[in-house]
């Protein structure tokens, strides 16, 4: 019975997983990204427009990522260049994204999905499901073992560190936020590609869940995606009748766990030191 849950858990985990990687890039560079929800929505929106207009899922994916990056850039310009309040900007962008999807309602017809890849022993999954662990490892290597990753982290740890190396902090923060646009955009694309239809509430708070998973995973890609598995597992449990506990209550558990972890009761969460700080 538990084995039956694996496919649905993976499907639930994947969109959050991409958003988490995006959130980690942004927050590691010191920018709080509450706009993940809106970026995911724009990704899904772009996917359905592109896939419907061209009939090709690949065009959909590109348009989705493109729109995700554009909306993330808006967040970047506001917060990095104009030092706007990051939390408020993020929420404003979520409103904006919701408004765009309501203003120009995309097609309600079925659109093409990205191809599945069949693997021995594991079964057949959407390529984005299988790409996630690869990107997770790549992100881990990028953040911890490359000079670029070091600079990205430096931007988030101190307002002064990059300046002493005569490097631009703003530039690396732009990199972080744009990467978050790409990844959260892919997360949104996966949601549409998976169910083939676009609805207004398709993201359903997954962007905020991803934010929780970023913290749960202590701002590390490997742990972050692992945390998503927990959230994904909890939300796939309602497919089976587990001990007749109502699914709403089961879905609360990861959120409570996040609060417990954040309080430092279990493990220790340490945010980037200069997260949210713009002035030195």
């Amino acid at each position: 019975m538990i084995l039956d849950l694996i496919p649905s858990t993976l499907r639930m985990t994947t969109p959050i997983g991409y958003a988490v990687l995006g959130g980690i890039y942004s927050e590691r560079s010191g920018i709080i990204n509450l706009a993940l929800e809106g970026i995911m929505l724009m990704g899904a929106y772009g996917y359905v427009i592109g896939a419907h207009a061209s009939g090709s899922a690949w065009v959909g994916l590109s348009v989705g990522i493109g729109l995700g990056v554009i909306i993330a850039l808006l967040h970047a310009v506001a917060t990095i260049t104009f030092h706007a309040e990051q939390i408020v900007t993020g929420i404003a962008i979520n409103l904006l994204a919701l408004g765009i999807t309501e203003y120009l309602i995309p097609t309600t017809e079925r659109v093409a999905g990205l191809p599945d890849i069949g693997l021995p022993f594991i079964g057949s999954y959407s390529m984005l499901v299988l790409l996630l662990p690869i990107l997770m490892v790549v992100s881990h290597v990028f953040i911890y073992f490359t000079p670029w990753g070091l600079r990205l982290r430096a931007a988030g740890e101190s307002t002064e560190a990059l300046k002493t190396l005569s490097l631009s902090r703003a530039k690396w923060q732009y990199v972080g936020v744009i990467l978050s646009g790409i990844f959260a955009g892919i997360g949104g694309c996966f949601l549409v590609s998976d169910v083939h239809y676009f609805t207004k509430g398709i993201i359903g708070g997954r962007g905020y869940v991803a934010l929780a998973a970023v913290i749960f995973g202590n701002w590390r890609p490997l742990y972050g995606v692992a945390a998503c598995l927990l959230f994904g597992f909890a939300s796939s449990l309602d497919l089976i009748d587990l001990l007749s506990i109502p699914d709403q209550l089961l879905r609360i558990i990861p959120h409570i766990l996040t609060m417990v972890v954040l309080a430092g009761l279990v493990g220790r969460s340490r945010p980037p030191a200069a997260l949210g700080k713009m002035k030195s």
């Binding site: 404003a92 409103l95 904006l96 408004g99 765009i100 203003y103 120009l104 309602i105």
Partner: peptide, 11 residues
């Protein structure tokens, strides 16, 4: 569409 006002609010 109502979305116009939401976009406006966000901006």
């Amino acid at each position: 569409p109502r979305g116009l006002f939401l976009i406006g609010q966000g901006l």
